[in-house]
Design a binder for these strands. Structure first.
Lengths: 198, 198
DNA sequence: CAGGGAGGTTAGCGGTCGTTAACCTGAAGG
DNA sequence: CCTTCAGGTTAACGACCGCTAACCTCCCTG
């Protein structure tokens, strides 16, 4: 067969397996030997690709936060001039896609942040904050009576709802990806609507 | 028999601090010396009260799951003969109280389960499953058209929403405990309503 | 008032972990 | 054909961690 569009580089392979293992057993619960074994090399061979175990986690978390924020900004741009209501649906859809397709990353993203070095942690926190604030502004446009602190709480809570995908049973026991995505979407909108209705 | 308002025993003190530390830095990220220091004794002194570090986590997780389930069963009993709608509100209220008052435990409860020994993990899983199924049956009574798999997914998602309290900022930056509880309650009901409306 | 248990202490052992050092190898390039 | 180098290997080091051993010291009680 012809080479695929992008053969996954070894770095990406390592990051993928590291994410899975970190999500399963926690950052401190996984040894570098295990990560190496997961990609067919062993232990110290990883140091040809990363400065250390911390660097893998940092790259994962920065990547996640950046990807979420970039995607959200793109959606805002594409919806320019449209209704805030449609934009909110778009944001929800994007977040659900991410939560369903990259469960290990979603798990890491709100679990292992404190294991980062100061500089990396601040960067991730900043990206996450921008993402939240973007949502908050859209939510407040859809529900103008909702005070900002309540809107921010509501956004965090809806993230909790959408990020519950890892608890939803392994893919296969679900009613199907599309049905699950739609259910989550409806629930998120329902939650926001309930928050915005005094 | 035991009086109800005892001064916290050393065991309880240890469990409390261990829960906080485990939630902050992860089970593997906390050393026994730190736990000891948090209660004013040092390291190995903990072994006068617990068989080991694992035993502390086990007691915490079994305690959480059991407490949630017991509380839910009590609420079902007290609501006997009443409407399922009121009962669902009662369950939500109980879960919110727990999520707001014991944030470290809520964090541990869905994060460190895999660090348990087989026997303990199975016990915790069983308690959690009973708790979920209790919610599912109540939700299906309130929204009879909702299929069981969808109801179960909805329950897990609402747990994700309610358990988002640790992300809501330290207590003090919130609009107040009562207002936060009410907001979470409304959002949970809104999410369920959206799930149950085809 | 002996003595024994509850609840501490410090020293240290054995194992694990992240990381480095030193070495190997196959393929590309002039 | 020789060199270079990316990408591996194994050995080993130092730090840390969970836990045990050995010992101490109150306080309660018969």
């Amino acid at each position: 067969m012809a080479t695929r569009t992008d053969a996954p580089t070894r770095r990406e392979q390592i990051l993928r397996e590291a994410a899975r293992l970190f999500a399963e057993r926690g950052f401190h619960g996984v040894g570098v030997d295990e990560i190496g074994a997961a990609v067919g090399i062993s232990g110290p061979g990883l140091y040809r690709h990363f400065a250390g175990k911390d660097a893998m986690l940092a790259e994962l978390l920065v990547g996640i936060s950046g990807q979420l924020l970039t995607g959200a900004k793109r959606r805002v741009r594409e919806a320019d001039g449209g209704s805030a209501d449609v934009l909110l649906d778009s944001l929800i859809e994007g977040h659900i896609d991410f939560a369903l397709d990259d469960r290990p990353l979603i798990t890491l993203h709100d679990r292992e942040l404190d294991r980062l070095r100061d500089t990396d942690r601040k960067l991730v926190r900043q990206l996450q904050r921008q993402y939240v604030e973007l949502w908050v502004s859209v939510v407040r446009e859809v529900y103008p009576t909702l005070p900002e602190p309540a809107a921010r709480s509501a956004v965090h809570s809806v993230f909790g709802l959408l990020n519950s995908t890892p608890h939803l049973g392994r893919p296969g026991s679900l009613p199907g990806r599309g049905a699950t995505a739609e259910l989550l979407h409806r629930m998120a909108r329902g939650a926001f609507a309930a928050a915005g209705t005094d």
